[in-house]
Design a protein around this nucleic acid. Structure first.
Lengths: 235, 235
DNA sequence: TCAAAAGTGTTGTGTGTACACCCATGT
DNA sequence: ACATGGGTGTACACACAACACTTTTGA
């Protein structure tokens, strides 16, 4: 910390606690779920809350979010995007805490839950059936879901919820689960394939006693924004 | 301030200075401009910077942005939207300052510049010809412009740059200035009128020696998001 | 042979886009 | 009368949306 106070207003040093909170989404059994942790400390002791914590002195806010996320999961390289900053003075009964909210997407298969020592419990909840949440976390989840639903229409964030190889049916299912409505199979497939971002492999997935489905991979290294005629799901 | 420290990590109280910075846009003479102030204090003394300041103890972050904005202008009720939070540890050479950036839109006609005492100078600059800016403010302006260009496509934010009554040519011009490209007059007018958010008045604006243009008003009380087929300017 | 999901085309409708001329006014 | 910007309609291409049947496999 610098010896001279970095910022002043009316001669008073004004500083705030900054937190990050992460809305981590996954899809399990065709249900969109959010990771919550049970609080061990007051306030809201025993309530479910978003994983998160305080931004330390030397790290960037993004780095803090990434650190919190990796303390809850074992996976590196998770898609993480800043959502909004909530700065109402009374959102935390302990005093002023400004929180920078993020959302993140992880695919269930590669996810490994790592129980943290300072967190008694962590568990996935369907977004449609959340328990009462601490602070204003319910509002943050709602906002994250709105953002996710919006961005799935014109970017490839949705692919973050799938494993490296996936069938078109799985892909469509992930879109349906996020958007909360059914999509037409033929239209969806045609649109996806003509975007030129999928590559069909020579492998198939045998799911039971029906015809095996071709596996595809995503050809782009990361999440991209689709321009011009590249909107995935029309409004 | 509570007597117990609101937040702790590893036993250390961790607090940060929080600033707000506002990218205030207007359109003057068919040029998109941004309000900048000349810094009176170190660091970057004498450089141009975004209007902004420190969030005080009791106000919300949004309220701080609104306050800064109203210190620079005389207008209440300005459209203001949170943009992004920049939290790199070294973005301010004085020490750690996290900034929550906003953008705002004001129409030039009703704007009155109020010279602040603590700011020596404030001036409008075309976004295409900005001077060197303090801190990472150039990046913030770029981000704000990107957001504005994006949101003009599916919301009615663009109307905030116009007076209460305006001609369709003025409306089209504001879109062209923001998007940086010409639009087809007939297509633009048809699309705007069929959205059902404009009401033609019986007044006309005589602009010189040509046919007077009909004045329109915006029928919605505030900025709205257009859904379904309501995209203003197609991608 | 049956059940279950994979996979595949066509058609109608609506929207985006390109494009050129007359109108109303002031000088 | 002329210069200036205001105001209007049509035709084509393409994307979206709706819709049903055949294929492949395991049981």
């Amino acid at each position: 910390m610098p010896t001279t106070s970095p910022t002043q207003t009316n001669g008073h040093l004004v500083q705030h606690a900054i937190a990050v909170d992460v809305v981590l989404f996954t899809i399990q059994d065709e249900i969109l779920k959010v990771l919550l942790v049970k609080r061990q400390e007051t306030p809201y002791r025993g309530s479910w809350a978003l994983p998160g914590g305080i931004v330390s002195q030397e790290e960037s806010v993004d780095a803090a979010a990434l650190r919190e996320l990796q303390e809850e999961t074992n996976i590196g390289n998770i898609y993480l995007e800043q959502l909004y900053t909530f700065g109402e003075p009374n959102r935390d009964p302990r005093g002023r805490v400004i929180t920078v909210a993020y959302y993140a997407l992880v695919n269930w298969q590669q996810f490994q839950l790592k129980v943290r020592q300072r967190v008694s419990e962590a568990s996935w909840f369907p977004v449609k059936r959340l328990p009462p949440l601490a602070f204003d976390h319910r509002r943050i989840v709602d906002y994250a879901l709105e953002r996710l639903r919006s961005k799935i229409n014109y970017t490839t964030v949705g692919f973050q919820l799938l494993p490296r190889q996936f069938t078109l049916t799985e892909l469509q299912s992930s879109y349906e689960v996020i958007l909360g409505r059914r999509l037409d199979k033929r239209n969806f497939r045609r649109k996806m394939l003509q975007l030129g971002i999928l590559k069909g492999t020579r492998e198939f997935q045998a799911n039971g006693r029906q015809r095996p489905a071709r596996l595809y991979t995503f050809t782009k290294p990361k999440v991209i924004t689709l321009q011009e005629k590249g909107i995935i799901v029309p409004f």
